[in-house]
């Protein structure tokens, strides 16, 4: 995998996961490689799930003032 899974967006993870599943389904891989791919798929799946379950979303309000852009949580 080119990128650290935890750095990936949901969309990237999902795309990567789709690719890995396609690779597995197309076959022609040796067992070790297949298991490596499967393990990576599990990591991506866990990462996607973590994003879906995360409750850390922020709701912020921004306003432009004479002193620049102001932010506050709402």
């Amino acid at each position: 995998m080119s990128k650290d899974v935890n750095e990936m967006s949901f969309e990237e993870s999902l795309r990567e996961l789709e690719e890995l599943v396609d690779m597995l389904e197309n076959g022609g891989l040796d067992l070790d490689r297949s298991l490596d791919i499967y393990e990576n798929a599990v990591k991506l799946r866990d990462h996607c799930r973590k994003i879906l379950e995360s409750s850390e979303r922020r709701v912020q309000k921004i306003m432009e003032t004479s002193g620049g852009i102001q932010r506050e949580d709402i």
Partner: peptide, 12 residues
């Protein structure tokens, strides 16, 4: 997708 992956792994 994970079910497909494990089926493929089993086939492999």
């Amino acid at each position: 997708m994970m079910m497909r992956a494990s089926r493929s792994l089993a086939a492999c």
